[in-house]
Nucleic acid binder design. Structure first.
Length: 261
DNA sequence: ATGCCTTTCCCAGAAAGA
């Protein structure tokens, strides 16, 4: 079983590359983030031509998540119970979708950015992560190996950013954000750290600007948080940096997992 | 990156991203 997660930064802009990547890598399950498309605009027939069924949960212009599966797509849940919403509780964004795909259950999540620690988006980010933790607890009744994966917008440690000094005063590295990840691990979830295909650290995101990808000035913010049964089945995990190369790439690279269940 | 790209809205430039 091959499972991947990828922030595509617009499924419309990325569709040619996404389809070529799916045909090449042939994952059984793919969690997508930042699809940036409404559900009725989702390219379901295009992914179906490669053998995938899709569970899409989108807003339109911003956010948007999806799960593609070749091995079944059941018990789909879109959103989080108790989602805090932004900027007010009645404006709930499309940032989470879960589905049972054959022998596993997966969540595709796009955690709010936070913008700046002083911004109210930062409080929203922490509240959203708390809602995610509660949702995982209530969803664990669907008794299968499971993993929550996607763009967490948090670098778990200082080693997960190219230069900690460059992030002083920024989001993605603050103790409360890292504590929110620790609270997920306290549920028994394990951070599946992939191997890099080049250089020494498994970065998954590089800013488009200033040649950051070329210089490997990246961050590891696309994460896989797996239950013990899921984590025990993982035989390999890597960051597919090839997908970040060239023109027309997302600013995130996919994380690909191999499982033996 | 105090925005050195990219994407969306839709045709001009603002908003958002991390």
């Amino acid at each position: 079983m091959r499972i991947a997660t990828w922030n595509v930064n617009s499924i419309t802009a990325r569709l040619p590359r996404l389809l070529a990547w799916l045909a090449d890598v042939r994952p059984d399950i793919v969690c997508l983030q930042e699809t940036k498309i409404s559900d009725d605009g989702f390219p379901a027939s295009e992914v179906e031509s490669l053998g995938y069924t899709a569970a899409a949960h989108g807003d339109g212009r911003w956010n948007g998540v999806a799960i593609l599966s070749k091995v079944g797509l059941d018990e789909v849940r879109a959103g989080l119970p108790g989602d805090p919403g932004y900027p007010t509780s009645d404006v709930v964004e499309a940032r989470a979708v879960a589905a049972t795909c054959g022998d596993v259950r997966v969540w595709s999540v796009y955690v709010p950015n936070g913008r700046e620690p002083s911004h109210d988006h930062y409080g929203y980010k922490l509240a959203w992560l708390e809602a995610l933790r509660n949702a995982i607890t209530s969803d664990a009744g669907i008794a299968r190996p499971f993993a929550v994966m996607g763009d967490f917008n948090v670098a778990p440690t200082d080693a997960d950013v190219w230069d900690p000094a460059a992030f002083v005063g920024s989001t993605h590295v603050t103790p409360p954000e890292r504590a929110a990840l620790a609270a997920l691990r306290d549920l028994g979830l394990r951070d599946i750290v992939p191997r890099p295909l080049k250089y020494d650290r498994p970065f998954t995101y590089w800013d488009y600007r200033a040649g950051n990808f070329h210089k490997n000035l990246g961050m590891r913010i696309d994460l896989v948080y797996a239950s013990s049964a899921f984590a025990d089945a993982v035989t390999d995990a890597y960051v597919d940096r090839e997908a970040r190369k060239g023109t027309g790439a997302s600013d995130h690279a996919p994380v690909v997992l191999e499982l033996s269940l």
